[in-house]
Amino acid sequence: MTRALTGGELAVQINDNFPNTVDEYTDISCYIQSNDLPKVARFLKETPNLNFAFLRSVSAVDYIDHFEIIYHLLSMRLNLSAVVKTKCPGREDPCVPSVVDVWRGANLQEREIWDLMGIRFDGHPNMKRIMLWEGFQGHPLRKDFLR
Protein backbone atom coordinates (compact mmCIF):
# COMPACT_ATOMS: atom_id res chain seq x y z
CA MET A 1 0.00 0.00 0.00
CA THR A 2 1.37 3.38 -0.89
CA ARG A 3 1.53 5.51 2.22
CA ALA A 4 0.44 9.09 1.72
CA LEU A 5 2.60 11.52 3.63
CA THR A 6 0.39 14.00 5.47
CA GLY A 7 0.91 17.68 4.96
CA GLY A 8 2.14 18.03 8.53
CA GLU A 9 4.89 15.42 8.19
CA LEU A 10 6.03 16.96 4.96
CA ALA A 11 5.96 20.46 6.41
CA VAL A 12 8.22 19.40 9.29
CA GLN A 13 10.75 17.89 6.90
CA ILE A 14 10.77 20.93 4.65
CA ASN A 15 10.81 23.49 7.46
CA ASP A 16 13.79 21.78 9.06
CA ASN A 17 15.84 22.49 5.99
CA PHE A 18 14.25 25.58 4.52
CA PRO A 19 12.66 27.69 7.23
CA ASN A 20 9.66 29.80 6.27
CA THR A 21 8.98 28.08 2.98
CA VAL A 22 5.85 26.27 4.09
CA ASP A 23 2.83 28.56 4.13
CA GLU A 24 0.32 26.18 5.61
CA TYR A 25 -0.54 22.52 5.52
CA THR A 26 -3.62 20.32 5.55
CA ASP A 27 -4.14 16.61 6.07
CA ILE A 28 -3.17 15.67 2.56
CA SER A 29 -1.06 18.48 1.29
CA CYS A 30 1.37 21.20 2.12
CA TYR A 31 1.56 24.66 0.62
CA ILE A 32 4.95 26.10 -0.10
CA GLN A 33 6.11 29.47 -1.33
CA SER A 34 6.28 29.46 -5.11
CA ASN A 35 9.70 31.16 -5.13
CA ASP A 36 11.24 28.30 -3.17
CA LEU A 37 9.74 25.65 -5.39
CA PRO A 38 12.87 24.51 -7.30
CA LYS A 39 15.03 24.08 -4.23
CA VAL A 40 12.27 22.37 -2.27
CA ALA A 41 11.65 20.11 -5.27
CA ARG A 42 15.28 19.17 -5.43
CA PHE A 43 15.29 18.55 -1.69
CA LEU A 44 12.23 16.29 -1.97
CA LYS A 45 13.78 14.36 -4.81
CA GLU A 46 17.25 13.91 -3.36
CA THR A 47 16.65 13.41 0.38
CA PRO A 48 17.12 9.68 1.00
CA ASN A 49 14.16 9.25 3.33
CA LEU A 50 11.79 11.01 0.92
CA ASN A 51 13.23 10.23 -2.51
CA PHE A 52 10.33 11.57 -4.53
CA ALA A 53 11.88 10.77 -7.90
CA PHE A 54 8.62 10.30 -9.74
CA LEU A 55 6.42 13.30 -10.48
CA ARG A 56 2.97 11.86 -10.93
CA SER A 57 1.24 14.90 -12.22
CA VAL A 58 1.25 18.65 -12.25
CA SER A 59 -2.21 20.20 -12.09
CA ALA A 60 -3.43 23.75 -11.95
CA VAL A 61 -6.71 24.95 -10.53
CA ASP A 62 -8.22 28.38 -11.04
CA TYR A 63 -9.62 29.67 -7.73
CA ILE A 64 -10.55 33.07 -9.24
CA ASP A 65 -8.42 35.08 -6.79
CA HIS A 66 -5.40 32.89 -7.17
CA PHE A 67 -4.14 29.87 -9.07
CA GLU A 68 -3.04 26.74 -7.35
CA ILE A 69 -0.40 24.41 -8.77
CA ILE A 70 -0.52 20.91 -7.39
CA TYR A 71 2.40 18.49 -7.59
CA HIS A 72 1.60 14.86 -6.90
CA LEU A 73 4.80 13.14 -5.93
CA LEU A 74 5.67 9.50 -5.60
CA SER A 75 8.66 7.72 -4.18
CA MET A 76 8.91 4.39 -5.90
CA ARG A 77 11.72 3.17 -3.69
CA LEU A 78 9.87 3.83 -0.43
CA ASN A 79 6.32 3.50 -1.78
CA LEU A 80 5.46 6.91 -0.44
CA SER A 81 3.31 9.63 -1.91
CA ALA A 82 2.93 13.30 -1.15
CA VAL A 83 1.10 16.34 -2.43
CA VAL A 84 2.80 19.70 -2.65
CA LYS A 85 0.85 22.78 -3.58
CA THR A 86 1.80 26.30 -4.35
CA LYS A 87 -0.28 29.40 -4.80
CA CYS A 88 0.15 31.83 -7.58
CA PRO A 89 -1.66 35.13 -7.21
CA GLY A 90 -2.65 37.47 -10.00
CA ARG A 91 -4.51 36.90 -13.24
CA GLU A 92 -2.30 38.97 -15.52
CA ASP A 93 0.75 36.92 -16.34
CA PRO A 94 0.90 34.62 -13.30
CA CYS A 95 4.30 33.03 -13.05
CA VAL A 96 5.79 30.07 -11.17
CA PRO A 97 9.32 28.69 -11.32
CA SER A 98 9.57 25.59 -13.45
CA VAL A 99 10.60 22.22 -12.03
CA VAL A 100 11.68 20.71 -15.35
CA ASP A 101 15.28 20.78 -14.15
CA VAL A 102 14.32 18.51 -11.27
CA TRP A 103 11.74 16.26 -12.95
CA ARG A 104 11.78 15.98 -16.72
CA GLY A 105 8.28 14.60 -16.54
CA ALA A 106 7.03 18.10 -15.83
CA ASN A 107 7.98 19.28 -19.30
CA LEU A 108 4.82 18.57 -21.26
CA GLN A 109 2.51 19.10 -18.31
CA GLU A 110 3.82 22.57 -17.61
CA ARG A 111 3.41 23.42 -21.27
CA GLU A 112 -0.14 22.19 -21.09
CA ILE A 113 -0.84 24.32 -18.04
CA TRP A 114 0.57 27.38 -19.80
CA ASP A 115 -1.59 26.63 -22.80
CA LEU A 116 -4.87 25.95 -21.05
CA MET A 117 -4.53 27.85 -17.78
CA GLY A 118 -2.17 30.64 -18.70
CA ILE A 119 0.39 30.18 -15.97
CA ARG A 120 3.91 30.83 -17.15
CA PHE A 121 6.71 28.63 -15.87
CA ASP A 122 9.97 30.45 -15.41
CA GLY A 123 12.95 28.52 -16.68
CA HIS A 124 10.99 26.10 -18.83
CA PRO A 125 13.05 25.29 -21.93
CA ASN A 126 10.18 25.43 -24.42
CA MET A 127 7.30 27.48 -23.08
CA LYS A 128 4.96 27.25 -26.08
CA ARG A 129 1.34 26.35 -26.52
CA ILE A 130 0.83 22.62 -26.86
CA MET A 131 -2.82 21.72 -27.43
CA LEU A 132 -3.96 24.92 -29.09
CA TRP A 133 -2.30 26.81 -31.86
CA GLU A 134 -0.02 29.80 -31.45
CA GLY A 135 -2.12 32.93 -31.60
CA PHE A 136 -5.12 31.49 -29.80
CA GLN A 137 -6.73 34.15 -27.63
CA GLY A 138 -7.09 33.35 -23.96
CA HIS A 139 -6.63 30.23 -21.90
CA PRO A 140 -9.69 27.99 -21.97
CA LEU A 141 -9.46 26.27 -18.60
CA ARG A 142 -9.67 29.57 -16.73
CA LYS A 143 -13.00 30.16 -15.11
CA ASP A 144 -13.44 33.49 -16.84
CA PHE A 145 -12.78 32.16 -20.34
CA LEU A 146 -15.70 33.11 -22.55
CA ARG A 147 -16.89 30.58 -25.01
Binding site: A53, F54, L55, R56, M76, W103, R104, G105, A106, N107
Partner: peptide
Protein backbone atom coordinates in the same frame (compact mmCIF):
# COMPACT_ATOMS: atom_id res chain seq x y z
CA UNK B 1 16.67 6.42 -14.07
CA UNK B 2 15.58 8.41 -17.09
CA UNK B 3 12.23 6.68 -17.25
CA UNK B 4 11.43 7.53 -13.65
CA UNK B 5 12.73 11.05 -14.04
CA UNK B 6 10.50 11.59 -17.06
CA UNK B 7 7.42 10.28 -15.19
CA UNK B 8 7.03 7.43 -17.63
Amino acid sequence: EVAIDASI
